[in-house]
């Protein structure tokens, strides 16, 4: 495994279109933050530093009365998925130097996770693509947030353009990309069904986001059991 600038460029290009179409999400956050009374500069800083739509949107309702501790706990709760993403990438990422790894992981997010893990399973060995994809996402998130913070009300409801289906469509494509590249038969079906079932059941029983964590652990456990020693 390596981490090179060439990989960075590949990853950046690979996610650049998705990133452009994610700008409306950033606009939605910027507008919502300013509506809460958060100063424009702080809203933009938040997107640049936190770089997590889930954490930022989850923190907004608490902004007025929340303490630092409660904000941190909410952010932690919705961000636990990152731990799984990092662990899932570790078979590849832990082969590069720790410094590069710790720097590159700073932009870990669902879409560049999806793109990179599919690429690594295809045989790609340059972790730069995770960082490059993350950089594209970061740019779009910060740009969108800035636009939204400054000029949010002018856009109205962006969901009428179907933009909210963008991410889930991308993830669907990434799930199928694995299958198309290397059909693994029964080894993928049972874990996927397990994950789907746990996700659905957990959606109503568990706090927001935790059903994803539970589903991932369950699917992983089934995958480990099937694999044998």
């Amino acid at each position: 495994m390596t981490l090179t600038f060439s990989g960075f460029c590949k990853g950046f290009r690979s996610l650049s279109w998705l990133a452009v179409f994610l700008i409306p999400f950033g606009i939605a956050f910027g507008a919502a933050a300013v509506e809460r009374g958060i100063p424009v500069a702080q809203a933009i800083f938040m997107s640049a530093a936190v770089f997590s739509a889930a954490a930022q949107f989850a923190a907004l309702p608490l902004w007025d009365q929340g303490t630092v501790l409660s904000l941190v706990l909410v952010v932690l709760a919705v961000s636990t998925r990152h731990i799984l993403l990092g662990a899932a990438l570790s078979p590849w990422l832990n082969q590069i130097s720790r410094t590069r790894r710790l720097a590159g992981l700073s932009v870990l997010s669902d879409p560049n996770f999806a793109e990179s893990s599919a690429a690594f399973e295809r045989g790609e060995r340059d972790a730069g693509r995770l960082v490059g994809g993350g950089a594209a996402l970061w740019l779009s998130w910060v740009t969108g947030s800035a636009i939204g913070a400054v000029a949010g009300e002018t856009f109205g409801d962006l969901n009428r353009f179907g933009i909210d289906a963008l991410m889930v469509s991308y993830f669907t494509a990434m799930i199928l990309a694995r299958w198309l590249d290397r059909w693994q038969g029964r080894h993928t079906v049972l874990p996927a069904l397990t994950a789907a079932a746990v996700a659905l059941v957990g959606l109503h029983l568990l706090p927001a986001g935790w059903n994803i964590v539970a589903a991932a652990l369950a699917g992983g456990a089934v995958g480990g059991l099937i694999h044998g020693r």
Binding site: A88, P91, T188, A196, G223
Partner: peptide, 30 residues
């Protein structure tokens, strides 16, 4: 996640679990 895994010995089964987890996360989100 990465830091935790660097302190645990990797086995073939554990690696299979982690890779399956990767696919499972996306399935769960969708």
């Amino acid at each position: 996640g990465s830091e935790l895994m660097s302190r645990i010995a990797m086995t073939a089964r554990l690696e299979a679990m982690l890779k399956t987890m990767a696919a499972s996360v996306l399935v769960a989100i969708v």
